[in-house]
Design a protein around this nucleic acid. Structure first.
Lengths: 217, 217
DNA sequence: AATGAAATTCAATGAACGTTGAAATAAGTT
DNA sequence: AACTTATTTCAACGTTCATTGAATTTCATT
């Protein structure tokens, strides 16, 4: 490990945690460096600017994420006899790596997903930043979905994916709202419960929309 | 209209627009009052504090929204012969008032929904604020869903609603990401296309999850 | 041990922040 | 027209912001 690397990682960890809680504008460099127990000036020394630090936080885990999701997709396609994976498997390959890391990857991953959930729905970052980090992978998944639903109109695939994406992102936002709504009968932190339910729910939606002629039927 | 009411509304309009674009912490009182073309001090004079102004923005349209959504639900329940509305109708009653106002209600409504989408997925506001403004209505809808799916386990209803909610919220966030992904084949601003597809997609998910014994089948 | 670069500390910068009090203006009431 | 109250303007408050330059310390390499 290089000389300043421990400091760099401590700053990234604190930035990740605080950005996840209050967003980019809701956190100051001073709060981050105080949480990391390092001098205020070190954030700018290591990352150049607050905005660069934000990008570094997003990038750090995005690469691993994209890699493992792609591997999972290729795996299930290789296992399918005709090279076309099932809808349920595609949905699982897309969501499982995220939910699994949020559930069992430690607090850093949990913060990371909370941050992604937040910026995903914001006009300031949602379009540009998310596109930059995740679109190549998503395009690959959509290609798989098209093969799994060969009769589908393209628009129905895109809207179905869009619904899927929204459901998934709200899940790992873990705002706890469903806990209140259900009076404690379900817990937003119980991502294993989601893993069980997301593929059948979403796959059924895809089939209803994409296997019939047009959205009305 | 009372004396300062025009100023109040101009401040609310500008605050709504700017908060939607960059979030609570990303906007300053000075930017808001400059956009509204009023003196800086007037925001504090009329609303007391920045935070109170934020709440006032959220509250302004929430009441109308809750009212019309509840009316729609009661309407379809009254029209159903046994008082139990269909899944598709419930989903439509929940989402249509939102999507319709975002599409045809003018730029203020569009900003409002973008703002709601943003804070819905944030830990800072998502749990507490959303609960405060919308939970009573959501509980009413969940009761209707339970009646439409009498065999369902409660947990499956809550998780299905959760997926529904995530899909809906991402829709009216309108970040434009789906536009890029589809190379312009679909447009995130085409909410009529969503109105057509959301009820069948979501209803199929509900049925798959809630009409079978457990999530695995 | 000496050297030199990298990392860290310290103090300070100018700018912008939310908020406020006092003065000025506008409008409704008598 | 005089009075009263609500609204608006103006200037400033103290605080905090991201960032920086210079001084100091740390550490790997000689």
């Amino acid at each position: 490990m290089k000389r300043g690397e421990k400091t760099r990682q401590k700053i990234l960890d604190s930035a990740e945690k605080l950005f996840a809680k209050r967003g980019y504008h809701g956190v100051t460099i001073r709060q981050i460096t105080e949480d990391a127990k390092v001098d205020t000036a070190l954030a700018n020394y290591h990352f150049g600017s607050k905005r660069n630090l934000f990008d570094a936080v997003l990038l750090r885990r995005a690469e691993e994420l994209n890699k493992v999701r792609l591997e999972k997709l290729e795996e299930i396609e290789a296992a399918a006899e005709n090279g076309v994976a099932s809808l349920e498997d595609i949905i699982d390959a897309f969501s499982h790596p995220l939910l699994d890391r949020s559930e069992r990857g430690g607090p850093g991953w949990k913060s990371y997903f909370a941050l992604i959930a937040q910026i995903n729905n914001s006009p300031e970052w949602g379009g540009k930043l998310m596109t930059e980090y995740f679109d190549p992978l998503v395009r690959r998944f959509i290609a798989a979905l098209k093969r799994a639903l060969p009769e589908a109109h393209e628009e129905d695939i895109y809207w179905s994916y869009h619904f899927f994406s929204g459901a998934l992102v709200l899940t790992y936002a873990e705002t706890g709202r469903i806990d209140n709504l259900s009076d404690g009968k379900v817990h937003s932190s119980d991502l294993d419960a989601v893993q069980l339910r997301m593929p059948p729910f979403i796959a059924a939606g895809f089939r209803r929309l994409c296997e019939t002629s047009g959205p009305k039927s």
